[in-house]
């Protein structure tokens, strides 16, 4: 197990380097360090000296990828790319272009994102599984057919609609929840109700439909038929056999996205003014703060890889026949 983990982490390195190179190229194709300096220094009365100062202060005075004026190893290390990327690998994100410590901001904004994403996931799972079970109970009846039709309809509604309509009805018309904002501690609950509700409702269409097929797949297996033929009660069959076994693909699917919960929901957070990582990323894109975007891309890639590893591990736990070495 340990050896496996070490090997997977070792394999992740080239991927992370690749990610870094790619984002770096993309951002410097579109923005010269001069642009970034001007963006940060504001637009009134900025002189070239001030720009050069800023660049030197933030380490953007070096060449991008290759330093021709240096010698030896420094041709590669004494560049913006190396200076800015190397520290990422020890999770030292450095200062944003506007001068705040990125690591500090991420650690602050992680929790609001998580506070929305985790309950949405858990409640969503519970709702989706119960609904799917209910539908499976009525398989091959009109109810099943109609439910599937409703699910497809739900699935075809744009997520934006759920957000806009939810905010309008619950916040503006009915005065049930604050229309936007966030607070720390227990005071956060009233701000979280609506985003979580919307998250759950928006996920019903696709979630229930997927879980329904999992359950149906399980229900047609021989052992289930045998159990039923032996006269085991329908509820028992459903819960003891079908539910338990179908839970494996459901949970392994969930494990893959667990780490990404921290990345935050872009739309929900910006609509509800929740200071999570999603809105952090969106703001950084709009302000073209390269340091933040690069850090978030890196973080996203790391979490994605963690998700992959977790999935592999959960497969072996769920089904001991699969050995880790094969994956």
């Amino acid at each position: 197990m340990t050896a496996y983990l070490i090997r997977r982490i070792w394999q992740a390195l080239p991927i992370l380097i690749g990610v870094n190179v790619l984002t770096f190229m993309l951002f410097f194709v579109l923005n010269s360090p001069d642009d970034m300096a001007r963006m940060q220094l504001g637009d009134k009365r900025v002189t070239q000296t001030a720009i050069d100062n800023w660049k030197a202060e933030h380490g953007y005075h070096l060449p991008l990828l290759y330093n021709a004026s240096a010698s030896g190893i420094e041709t590669v290390t004494d560049t913006i790319f190396f200076q800015k990327s190397a520290k990422l690998f020890v999770f030292d994100f450095g200062l944003s272009d506007s001068g705040r410590d990125i690591g500090y901001d991420i650690s602050q904004r992680l929790w609001p994102s998580f506070a929305i994403a985790a309950p949405s996931l858990v409640i969503g799972l519970m709702v989706n599984i119960s609904l799917a079970l209910l539908i499976v109970l009525f398989r091959a009846t009109v109810i099943d057919l109609m439910s599937v039709a409703v699910l497809v309809v739900l699935l075809s509604i744009s997520g934006l609609f759920y957000i806009i309509a939810g905010q309008f009805v619950m916040g503006k018309l009915l005065h049930l929840v604050p229309i936007s904002g966030y607070d720390t501690g227990l005071n956060a609950i009233k701000f979280l109700v609506l985003p979580i509700l919307i998250g759950v409702v928006a996920g019903i269409g696709s979630g229930v439909r997927l879980y329904r097929t999992f359950f149906l797949e399980e229900i047609e297996r021989d052992y289930v038929r045998t159990a039923r033929a032996k006269g085991v009660h329908e509820w028992v069959v459903l819960f003891r056999h079908v539910f338990r076994n179908a839970l494996i693909p459901i949970l392994t699917g969930v494990v893959a996205i667990l780490p990404l919960l921290f990345m935050g929901a872009l739309l929900t957070e910006s609509f509800f003014g929740i200071p999570g990582l999603g809105s952090y990323t969106l703001d950084a894109i709009n302000r073209q703060d390269f340091a933040i975007v690069r850090s978030m891309v890196f973080l996203g890639a790391v979490l994605y890889i963690v998700g992959l590893i977790l999935t592999d591990i959960s497969y072996t736990i769920a089904d001991p026949r699969i050995r880790l070495a094969n994956s």
């Binding site: 916040g171 005065h175 604050p178 229309i179 936007s180 904002g181 910006s270 003014g273 200071p275 809105s279």
Partner: peptide, 18 residues
Amino acid sequence: YSLEKETIPYWTKFLQGY
């Protein structure tokens, strides 16, 4: 001073007295 990025929530909250 609360962070309020979008104009709709700002206006609605003003009308609600917040």
